[in-house]
Amino acid sequence: MSKSAKQAEPSPPEPADQMIIRDLETVKVLTDPLRLEILELMRQPITVKAVARSLKMPPTKLYYHIGQMEAHGLIRVVATRVVSGIIEKQYQVTARHYSIDRKLLGVDKNNHHSLTQILHNVLDGVSADIQKGLESGLIRVGDEHPVHQRLVLGRTLVRITPQQAQEFIEKINQLLKQFSEDPSEEAQPYSFLIAFHPHSQAKVMEGDDG
């Protein structure tokens, strides 16, 4: 008898285009830097062992994180097979994009600490990923390198109307959707971080204009 045998299962459902996170506990699970890396790897069906190989860590250190992600609906089992008498599972994200319900981002005495932690986790995860890319040579710094290898990093302030702000966000969402649909076999993952918000001095600046 073969050591490996696939169970007959229907084709797994495709991930939803978007999942809106509506509770802080799920947000905390989602924004953990390691879990963000796992989610990126699980955009396609993958086993825990394969994730561990990619992250260069033992699978035993991933089971808790994957259990939390599955319990909060961020990932799901999409296929199983029996290998040497042991059931091996393949996981995949439940959505291609995750958004946080804007109601959770309001700052009050109940969730101020949670919001601060969310911001730290997101920024720490991006920082760690950039550092890894620089150390491995995957990310290059300097205009002499091709655009697809460069780190693009910056911050700027713009003065626009509320209508222009709405148009800007709509165009960003359209671009993200356009480039995430039907990726070719040559496609590589790129990290995209956006923080678009009224500047903390917006009211002061508006008052100065008057």
Rank of each mutant, 00 (worst) to 15 (best):
M1G: 14
S2G: 01
S4G: 03
Q7R: 06
E9R: 10
P10F: 06
P12A: 15
P13I: 13
P15A: 07
P15S: 05
D17Y: 02
E25P: 00
K28R: 13
T31S: 10
R35G: 06
L36R: 15
I38R: 02
E40C: 04
Q44V: 09
P45I: 12
T47G: 10
V48H: 00
K49C: 03
P59C: 14
G67N: 09
Q68D: 07
M69G: 04
V78P: 00
G85C: 09
E88D: 12
Q92S: 10
A95R: 11
A95D: 10
R96G: 08
R96E: 09
Y98V: 05
Y98P: 02
L105S: 02
V107I: 14
N110Q: 14
H112R: 14
D124M: 07
I130M: 08
K132V: 04
G133R: 07
E135T: 04
G137M: 05
D143C: 03
H145G: 04
Q149I: 01
V152G: 01
V152R: 06
L153M: 10
T156K: 11
Q163G: 02
Q163L: 10
Q174G: 14
K177G: 06
F179Q: 11
E181D: 12
Y190L: 07
Y190R: 09
S191P: 00
H197K: 14
S200D: 09
